[in-house]
Amino acid sequence: MADRVRVRAFMPPGHVRAPAYLRGKTGVIERSLGAFGNPEQLAYGLPADKKPLYRVRFTMAELWGNAAERPDDTLDAEIYAHWLEEVPDHAP
């Protein structure tokens, strides 16, 4: 998984652990946590595939724009790999 990732902006009905307020937002991988049963299957009593789980760090500026209390404060959340897309690194 790339260093910079974006949470996929899908909005399906049903149980998903990627919080709505993070969908479409870009962050960096803080650490890899290993593989865990996919909650989207577990929630319906189905056998679950193991999915890689990452802790992703977002800046408050990315999440809330000008409404952020302090742009460089951060939010970390656990996001499954299938909810992340790679963001190519741009030249600085």
Binding site: G14, H15, R17, G37, P39, L42, A43, Y44, G45
Partner: peptide, 12 residues
């Protein structure tokens, strides 16, 4: 008999 995810789904 169920998972925590199943409970969360029912709550939602």
């Amino acid at each position: 008999h169920f998972t925590v995810d199943g409970l969360r789904r029912a709550l939602e």
